[in-house]
Amino acid sequence: MGKNKGLVAVYGATGHTGAFVVAELLRRGLPVVAVGRDMSRIPAGVSARIATLDDATALDGAFADCSVVINCAGPFLDTASPIIEAALRVGSAYLDVTAEQASARSTFERYDEHARAKGLAIIPAAGFYGGLADLLASALVGQHTVDDMTVAIALDHWWSTKGTRTTGERNSVPRVVVTDGRLVPMTMPATKTAWTFDAPHGVQAMEEMPFSEIITIAHHLRVRNLRAYLNTSALDEVRAQATPQPMAVDKHGRSAQTFAIEVIVNDRAGARRAVARGQDIYAVTAPLVAEAAARMRQPSFARSGTLSLGEAFDAEDFLRSFGPEHLMFELRAA
């Protein structure tokens, strides 16, 4: 089993999100190895291995003694398959942080049987997009069917990284939502609405913008109708070529960006809401995947197959494991 090997590999460790993940794993005292094409920017003291996506032998060698492989290198439509396949060959569990619906959907569909046969867990979309909303939804929902679920995200700014822009240009696959229990193409033009968040975000103009949370939630929760919205001002920023990249403002390297994410469900138990707030959507991905990796390395972790974060772990316990410096979380009536 991969969990007995020890190391945690981070592919794409020199990227913006990957650097946060490496730092968080080190902070937790987990043994880290950075893997990628160019290791010249790896921090001193971090082991590094060169492996390109088109070199299966090098990937196998890089992951051979790793319990978990964390893929932070997008676009995931290009990177997920070769890294997952290498992880499966050598017996390592896998996590990635994709916001791309098509990549997450492909991982769930293509690798479940192989991962089960190997006794390994494969968890796509375990970051801010995909993973966090899935955890919030899972903390709200039991085993019964949910009639309606809405995910609403507010960012006071979206200072996008080069990787985000590259992924956006690469990802031309039509976005999907859940209608009558099925994944269907989102109706265009996108629906617009308004949403009232807690301060400091307040009332926000919103636009329907589903990311990988649609795929992660629909993978394991019974939801008849599922929609996701992002505030229009954040979308305007990420779409503008002149918007700058994020700049560090604290000792952790985080930008000043703040976020709020809410999930509201309506079912036979009534309406209720899960809320998470924090700083820097790229940085908050690090504690999410680091916590998942730490739990996956434990001998008691026995899940296998393709899973979402909320499916693999007790969602409320997982969310409450974070201190307020990483993530503030609460459940409340809608």
Rank of each mutant, 00 (worst) to 15 (best):
H219R: 14
V184I: 09
L327C: 04
G91V: 05
G305P: 00
E330T: 14
L221D: 05
N4R: 10
T196M: 05
E100Y: 07
A99L: 09
E109H: 01
A115R: 07
T216S: 11
H252N: 15
T161M: 05
T17E: 04
A102Q: 08
L135Q: 04
A256D: 13
E213A: 07
L26S: 10
D236E: 15
G15I: 14
R224M: 14
P287H: 06
R182E: 11
P43Q: 12
D147K: 05
A126G: 09
D55N: 14
A19P: 02
V46T: 13
I261L: 15
E316C: 01
R105L: 07
L132N: 04
S92P: 09
V177H: 00
G310K: 09
R175E: 06
R165T: 13
A269E: 12
L120W: 02
L327S: 09
L307Q: 01
L307P: 00
E325F: 00
V10W: 04
H144M: 11
T191L: 15
M206H: 10
A293K: 03
V46L: 09
Y11E: 09
N71V: 03
H201Q: 13
V223E: 02
L7F: 12
G18K: 04
T258V: 14
A13P: 12
A23M: 03
P174S: 10
D156I: 15
A256W: 07
K118Q: 10
L136E: 03
F259W: 15
L331A: 06
E85R: 13
I122A: 01
K3P: 08
A93Y: 03
A23V: 08
A228W: 03
M149D: 07
Q298N: 10
Q279Y: 05
A56D: 12
A152P: 01
Y282V: 13
G278L: 04
A121H: 02
M186R: 06
P246N: 12
T232C: 02
G18R: 08
G168V: 07
L59K: 11
A276L: 01
R89T: 15
V146R: 02
A276Q: 01
A19K: 14
D180F: 02
L25Y: 08
E113Y: 00
E330G: 07
A56E: 11
N231V: 00
A190K: 03
V223T: 08
R320L: 11
S138W: 02
C66Y: 11
T306D: 00
G45R: 10
L136W: 00
I264A: 12
V90P: 06
E291Q: 13
K251L: 14
A283G: 13
L183K: 05
D148I: 11
Q298F: 06
S308M: 00
E109Y: 00
A34M: 13
T107G: 01
A104V: 02
V289M: 08
V203N: 08
A93P: 01
P31R: 14
D65V: 05
I84K: 08
V176M: 12
A269G: 09
E100L: 03
Q257L: 12
V33S: 07
R277C: 11
A333H: 11
T145I: 10
T107C: 12
A126C: 12
F76I: 10
G36E: 03
Q204G: 00
A13Q: 09
D180W: 01
F322I: 05
D134N: 11
A315Q: 02
L307F: 00
N171V: 12
G305V: 01
